[in-house]
Design a protein around this nucleic acid. Structure first.
Lengths: 216, 216
DNA sequence: GTGCCCTGATGACCGTTAGTCAGTGGCTGA
DNA sequence: TCAGCCACTGACTAACGGTCATCAGGGCAC
């Protein structure tokens, strides 16, 4: 049935068109302020049609987020290829992730709101399965970097790669969160602080904590 | 005018009564699911009245959050009094904050959603001013702990207390965020991970990164 | 070629909820 | 006694995510 195949192609293309519109709008206003009506308008479809392709707004956002994180993976792999040691690779994972969130702050906000939503967000939809898988890939690069460091002697042997990668990822999450809101955060501190510097301090601290040899 | 004074007392009492109702409900359902109608019902007032005391729902939530963080400060001060060194005090600040978020997960979620809201949340209301001030107090304890450690020789001298305290605070934020959602997070990892352990790993890593003497 | 049917699209409509505002009643001070 | 003020009220509005009865038109059987 050539018809069935064409239908399937058209379905995928329409889904992509919706994601195009949503991604464009998201980049402008963020996930929170994204309106389903606006997406429908931009995609030149009616609102009801959106719900034929995505279970709800969150699933649509997860679709956009999956696309974005797909951009991260090749960059991360390229940067990791240049590293000279496992410890250096650990730094590179953190730095690359940070740079990515600077380019796509809305994506990061979405991830945080997903993580902090508790039970509230129904993330059992297909779009979320994909998204979680991609996040898992990023995490895996951190695990691999630690293992590589243990093999080449740059990382302490008494750390367990997987839990430690989670520690790296989650602590980085908080640092980035603050950095994304540095204007409002720093404004109300007694003295001015350079919050970009805090990111570097964090990466340095992490490297020091994982380093096998004491680097002074 | 004794009347004016009584009016003022009554106004404060009513405000507190609203906060009582909101705090109770928040503990049950969280900030996100808190309904202004429900608060009005619980406080035995009409919804319109709530808006005479709080500019909007967020300001009301900030009022509840301020109350909660007020509970943290004395506990933190008590725990800090028991510490034997500055480095130990740093660990204690992190641990106490973590324990607090376990008791008041909703408060923490509110703080995160405030931080990740960007421009969206109008936090110029009086209730937020108070809340920010309290957060500043907690942060100050971290700064003081680092300074104490530098004075007693337990913390490296080449760290700048204020930025480093921000690094400690923000990284801890991320670790706690993951911990609060450990069920949903760990569920989708290739192998089971104890996310409570990640908190300990993080505190250990932070201590290692700040310690003056290499502790192997 | 004709007509039936299925699929995908539609948009008016619904429910929920934050926030508003014209109206009410009781206390105060003259 | 009564005018005026002020806290309070609750029906109302707007905004937005999500639904569903209905429609159009392309494909298939005959």
């Amino acid at each position: 049935m050539a018809v069935a195949e064409r239908r399937e192609r058209e379905r995928i293309a329409r889904r992509e068109a919706i994601l195009d519109a949503a991604q464009q709008l998201t980049a402008e206003v963020g996930y929170q302020a994204l309106r389903m009506d606006a997406v429908a308008d931009a995609a030149e479809l009616s609102k009801g049609t959106l719900y034929l392709y995505f279970a709800n707004k969150e699933a649509l956002c997860a679709g956009v987020a999956s696309r974005l994180i797909d951009e991260l993976l090749p960059v991360l792999e390229k940067n990791l290829a240049k590293t000279s040691s496992g410890l250096d690779a650990v730094r590179q994972v953190l730095q690359t992730y940070f740079d990515f969130t600077r380019e796509h702050p809305h994506h990061f906000r979405f991830a945080v709101s997903w993580l902090s939503s508790g039970e509230r967000m129904d993330d059992s939809t297909e779009a979320f399965q994909l998204y979680r898988e991609r996040v898992g890939h990023v995490l895996q690069h951190a695990v691999t970097a630690i293992e590589r460091g243990q093999a080449d002697g740059s990382v302490r042997l008494d750390v367990d790669p997987l839990p430690q990668a989670l520690q790296l990822w989650s602590s980085m999450l908080g640092v980035i969160l603050i950095n994304l809101n540095k204007e409002s955060v720093s404004q109300r501190l007694p003295m001015p602080v350079d919050l970009d510097q805090v990111v570097n301090l964090h990466i340095d601290a992490m490297a020091r904590a994982l380093a096998r040899k004491e680097l002074s």
